[in-house]
Amino acid sequence: MSGHDHHDHHHDHDHSELSETQLRVRALETVLTEKGYVDPAALDVLIETYEKKVGPRNGARVVAKAWADPAYRERLLKNGTPAIAEVGYAGRQGEHIVAVENTPKRHNMVVCTLCSCYPWPVLGLPPVWYKAAPYRARAVNDPRGVLADFGVALPQDTEIRVWDSTAELRYLVIPMRPAGTEGWSEEKLAELVTRDSMIGTGLAKSPADLK
Protein backbone atom coordinates (compact mmCIF):
# COMPACT_ATOMS: atom_id res chain seq x y z
CA MET A 1 0.00 0.00 0.00
CA SER A 2 1.16 3.49 -0.70
CA GLY A 3 -0.85 4.76 2.24
CA HIS A 4 0.83 6.60 4.99
CA ASP A 5 -1.53 7.12 7.86
CA HIS A 6 -0.41 10.52 8.88
CA HIS A 7 -2.62 10.96 11.86
CA ASP A 8 -2.09 9.11 15.05
CA HIS A 9 -4.86 6.74 15.15
CA HIS A 10 -5.04 3.64 17.09
CA HIS A 11 -5.56 0.56 15.08
CA ASP A 12 -8.45 -0.51 17.21
CA HIS A 13 -10.84 -0.52 14.26
CA ASP A 14 -13.54 1.47 15.95
CA HIS A 15 -13.60 3.97 13.12
CA SER A 16 -12.76 4.09 9.45
CA GLU A 17 -9.36 4.68 7.98
CA LEU A 18 -8.23 6.26 4.75
CA SER A 19 -4.63 6.91 3.82
CA GLU A 20 -3.33 10.43 3.27
CA THR A 21 -3.36 9.75 -0.46
CA GLN A 22 -6.95 8.50 -0.45
CA LEU A 23 -8.01 11.60 1.50
CA ARG A 24 -6.37 13.85 -1.11
CA VAL A 25 -8.09 12.03 -3.96
CA ARG A 26 -11.46 12.30 -2.24
CA ALA A 27 -10.88 15.99 -1.55
CA LEU A 28 -10.06 16.66 -5.20
CA GLU A 29 -13.12 14.81 -6.39
CA THR A 30 -15.35 16.69 -3.94
CA VAL A 31 -14.00 20.09 -4.97
CA LEU A 32 -14.08 19.34 -8.71
CA THR A 33 -17.63 17.99 -8.39
CA GLU A 34 -18.83 21.05 -6.47
CA LYS A 35 -17.38 23.33 -9.12
CA GLY A 36 -19.01 21.31 -11.86
CA TYR A 37 -15.78 20.10 -13.45
CA VAL A 38 -16.40 16.42 -12.99
CA ASP A 39 -19.45 14.20 -12.69
CA PRO A 40 -18.84 11.41 -10.16
CA ALA A 41 -21.23 9.09 -12.03
CA ALA A 42 -19.28 9.55 -15.27
CA LEU A 43 -16.02 8.92 -13.41
CA ASP A 44 -17.48 5.73 -11.95
CA VAL A 45 -18.54 4.51 -15.38
CA LEU A 46 -15.02 4.97 -16.72
CA ILE A 47 -13.38 3.41 -13.67
CA GLU A 48 -15.72 0.43 -13.92
CA THR A 49 -14.33 -0.30 -17.39
CA TYR A 50 -10.95 -0.81 -15.67
CA GLU A 51 -12.36 -3.50 -13.40
CA LYS A 52 -9.75 -5.98 -14.58
CA LYS A 53 -6.91 -3.47 -14.57
CA VAL A 54 -6.85 -2.42 -10.93
CA GLY A 55 -4.87 -4.08 -8.18
CA PRO A 56 -3.41 -7.56 -7.91
CA ARG A 57 -6.82 -9.33 -8.24
CA ASN A 58 -5.63 -11.97 -5.83
CA GLY A 59 -9.08 -13.46 -5.50
CA ALA A 60 -8.99 -14.92 -9.01
CA ARG A 61 -5.76 -16.73 -8.15
CA VAL A 62 -7.23 -17.94 -4.86
CA VAL A 63 -10.29 -19.38 -6.62
CA ALA A 64 -8.20 -21.00 -9.35
CA LYS A 65 -5.96 -22.60 -6.74
CA ALA A 66 -8.96 -23.88 -4.81
CA TRP A 67 -10.28 -25.48 -8.02
CA ALA A 68 -6.95 -27.09 -8.83
CA ASP A 69 -5.72 -28.09 -5.38
CA PRO A 70 -8.15 -29.94 -3.04
CA ALA A 71 -5.90 -29.50 0.01
CA TYR A 72 -5.78 -25.75 -0.57
CA ARG A 73 -9.55 -25.64 -1.06
CA GLU A 74 -9.99 -27.30 2.31
CA ARG A 75 -7.64 -24.82 4.03
CA LEU A 76 -9.45 -21.95 2.34
CA LEU A 77 -12.90 -23.07 3.43
CA LYS A 78 -11.72 -23.78 6.96
CA ASN A 79 -9.87 -20.53 7.51
CA GLY A 80 -10.01 -18.05 4.66
CA THR A 81 -7.68 -15.27 5.77
CA PRO A 82 -4.40 -17.23 6.08
CA ALA A 83 -5.20 -19.29 2.97
CA ILE A 84 -5.67 -16.09 0.95
CA ALA A 85 -2.46 -14.67 2.44
CA GLU A 86 -0.59 -17.69 1.03
CA VAL A 87 -1.44 -16.43 -2.44
CA GLY A 88 -1.10 -12.71 -1.94
CA TYR A 89 -1.98 -9.58 -0.07
CA ALA A 90 -5.54 -9.63 1.24
CA GLY A 91 -5.98 -6.16 2.67
CA ARG A 92 -5.42 -4.63 6.04
CA GLN A 93 -4.92 -6.81 9.03
CA GLY A 94 -7.80 -7.42 11.32
CA GLU A 95 -10.47 -8.23 8.80
CA HIS A 96 -11.35 -11.79 8.25
CA ILE A 97 -12.30 -13.15 4.89
CA VAL A 98 -14.58 -16.13 4.79
CA ALA A 99 -14.67 -18.20 1.63
CA VAL A 100 -18.08 -19.60 0.73
CA GLU A 101 -18.39 -22.20 -1.96
CA ASN A 102 -21.04 -22.45 -4.65
CA THR A 103 -22.39 -25.91 -5.34
CA PRO A 104 -25.29 -27.20 -7.47
CA LYS A 105 -27.34 -27.02 -4.26
CA ARG A 106 -26.32 -23.61 -3.02
CA HIS A 107 -25.40 -20.30 -4.61
CA ASN A 108 -23.79 -17.59 -2.49
CA MET A 109 -24.13 -13.86 -3.01
CA VAL A 110 -22.48 -11.03 -1.05
CA VAL A 111 -23.70 -7.57 -0.15
CA CYS A 112 -21.37 -4.95 1.26
CA THR A 113 -21.49 -1.35 2.41
CA LEU A 114 -18.33 -0.37 0.55
CA CYS A 115 -16.68 0.79 3.72
CA SER A 116 -13.05 1.89 3.73
CA CYS A 117 -11.87 -1.68 4.20
CA TYR A 118 -13.55 -3.22 1.15
CA PRO A 119 -11.11 -6.04 0.24
CA TRP A 120 -10.24 -4.76 -3.25
CA PRO A 121 -6.85 -6.54 -3.38
CA VAL A 122 -8.84 -9.78 -3.36
CA LEU A 123 -12.08 -8.92 -5.11
CA GLY A 124 -10.94 -6.12 -7.37
CA LEU A 125 -12.87 -2.87 -7.83
CA PRO A 126 -16.36 -2.92 -6.38
CA PRO A 127 -19.07 -2.48 -9.01
CA VAL A 128 -20.73 0.93 -9.14
CA TRP A 129 -24.20 -0.39 -8.36
CA TYR A 130 -22.87 -2.10 -5.22
CA LYS A 131 -23.20 1.09 -3.24
CA ALA A 132 -26.83 1.60 -4.21
CA ALA A 133 -29.23 1.05 -1.32
CA PRO A 134 -31.84 -0.56 -3.64
CA TYR A 135 -29.32 -3.24 -4.56
CA ARG A 136 -28.74 -4.10 -0.93
CA ALA A 137 -32.44 -4.25 -0.15
CA ARG A 138 -33.32 -6.30 -3.23
CA ALA A 139 -30.38 -8.67 -2.82
CA VAL A 140 -31.77 -9.58 0.57
CA ASN A 141 -35.48 -9.72 -0.39
CA ASP A 142 -35.31 -11.02 -3.92
CA PRO A 143 -31.91 -12.53 -4.65
CA ARG A 144 -33.25 -14.59 -7.54
CA GLY A 145 -34.63 -11.44 -9.18
CA VAL A 146 -31.31 -9.64 -8.76
CA LEU A 147 -29.47 -12.57 -10.31
CA ALA A 148 -31.93 -12.59 -13.22
CA ASP A 149 -31.12 -8.90 -13.79
CA PHE A 150 -27.50 -9.94 -14.17
CA GLY A 151 -28.48 -12.66 -16.62
CA VAL A 152 -27.91 -15.48 -14.16
CA ALA A 153 -30.65 -18.12 -14.06
CA LEU A 154 -30.19 -20.83 -11.46
CA PRO A 155 -32.20 -24.03 -11.16
CA GLN A 156 -35.25 -23.56 -8.94
CA ASP A 157 -33.92 -26.05 -6.43
CA THR A 158 -30.65 -24.19 -5.94
CA GLU A 159 -30.82 -22.40 -2.63
CA ILE A 160 -29.54 -18.81 -2.71
CA ARG A 161 -27.72 -17.64 0.37
CA VAL A 162 -27.05 -13.92 0.82
CA TRP A 163 -24.15 -12.85 3.02
CA ASP A 164 -24.07 -9.34 4.46
CA SER A 165 -20.53 -8.17 5.11
CA THR A 166 -19.91 -6.81 8.58
CA ALA A 167 -17.12 -4.74 10.05
CA GLU A 168 -15.30 -7.91 10.98
CA LEU A 169 -16.20 -10.31 8.20
CA ARG A 170 -15.92 -10.13 4.43
CA TYR A 171 -16.81 -12.85 2.02
CA LEU A 172 -15.27 -14.37 -1.05
CA VAL A 173 -17.50 -16.57 -3.18
CA ILE A 174 -15.83 -19.57 -4.78
CA PRO A 175 -17.81 -20.03 -7.98
CA MET A 176 -18.34 -23.47 -9.44
CA ARG A 177 -15.56 -24.64 -11.70
CA PRO A 178 -16.75 -24.54 -15.31
CA ALA A 179 -17.01 -27.79 -17.25
CA GLY A 180 -14.36 -28.54 -19.83
CA THR A 181 -11.45 -27.19 -17.78
CA GLU A 182 -9.93 -30.47 -16.65
CA GLY A 183 -6.17 -30.34 -16.47
CA TRP A 184 -5.98 -26.55 -16.85
CA SER A 185 -3.17 -24.68 -15.09
CA GLU A 186 -4.05 -22.37 -12.21
CA GLU A 187 -2.98 -19.44 -14.33
CA LYS A 188 -5.38 -20.35 -17.10
CA LEU A 189 -8.17 -21.14 -14.64
CA ALA A 190 -7.75 -17.70 -13.05
CA GLU A 191 -8.73 -16.11 -16.35
CA LEU A 192 -12.19 -17.60 -15.91
CA VAL A 193 -12.74 -15.94 -12.53
CA THR A 194 -14.51 -12.61 -12.78
CA ARG A 195 -15.09 -10.04 -10.06
CA ASP A 196 -18.83 -10.64 -10.32
CA SER A 197 -18.37 -14.38 -9.86
CA MET A 198 -16.48 -13.71 -6.62
CA ILE A 199 -19.32 -11.61 -5.21
CA GLY A 200 -21.90 -14.04 -6.51
CA THR A 201 -23.70 -11.83 -9.01
CA GLY A 202 -22.23 -13.84 -11.85
CA LEU A 203 -20.82 -17.23 -12.70
CA ALA A 204 -17.26 -18.03 -13.72
CA LYS A 205 -16.64 -17.74 -17.44
CA SER A 206 -16.77 -20.86 -19.57
CA PRO A 207 -13.84 -21.91 -21.76
CA ALA A 208 -15.86 -20.68 -24.76
CA ASP A 209 -16.05 -17.16 -23.23
CA LEU A 210 -12.27 -16.85 -23.32
CA LYS A 211 -12.11 -17.12 -27.07
Partner: peptide, 25 residues
Protein backbone atom coordinates in the same frame (compact mmCIF):
# COMPACT_ATOMS: atom_id res chain seq x y z
CA UNK B 1 -6.50 26.22 0.99
CA UNK B 2 -9.76 24.78 -0.40
CA UNK B 3 -8.12 21.45 -1.18
CA UNK B 4 -6.60 21.32 2.26
CA UNK B 5 -9.86 22.23 3.99
CA UNK B 6 -11.75 19.59 2.03
CA UNK B 7 -9.15 16.95 2.78
CA UNK B 8 -9.42 17.81 6.44
CA UNK B 9 -13.23 17.45 6.25
CA UNK B 10 -12.85 13.95 4.78
CA UNK B 11 -10.46 13.10 7.56
CA UNK B 12 -13.08 14.21 10.04
CA UNK B 13 -15.78 12.17 8.27
CA UNK B 14 -13.48 9.19 8.42
CA UNK B 15 -12.85 9.55 12.12
CA UNK B 16 -16.54 9.73 13.01
CA UNK B 17 -17.59 6.84 10.74
CA UNK B 18 -17.68 3.51 12.52
CA UNK B 19 -15.54 0.83 10.97
CA UNK B 20 -17.57 -1.14 8.43
CA UNK B 21 -19.82 1.70 7.25
CA UNK B 22 -19.45 3.79 4.11
CA UNK B 23 -17.78 7.17 4.67
CA UNK B 24 -19.92 10.13 3.63
CA UNK B 25 -18.98 13.78 3.74
Amino acid sequence: ETLHRTKHAWEHACDRTPHGEPIEL
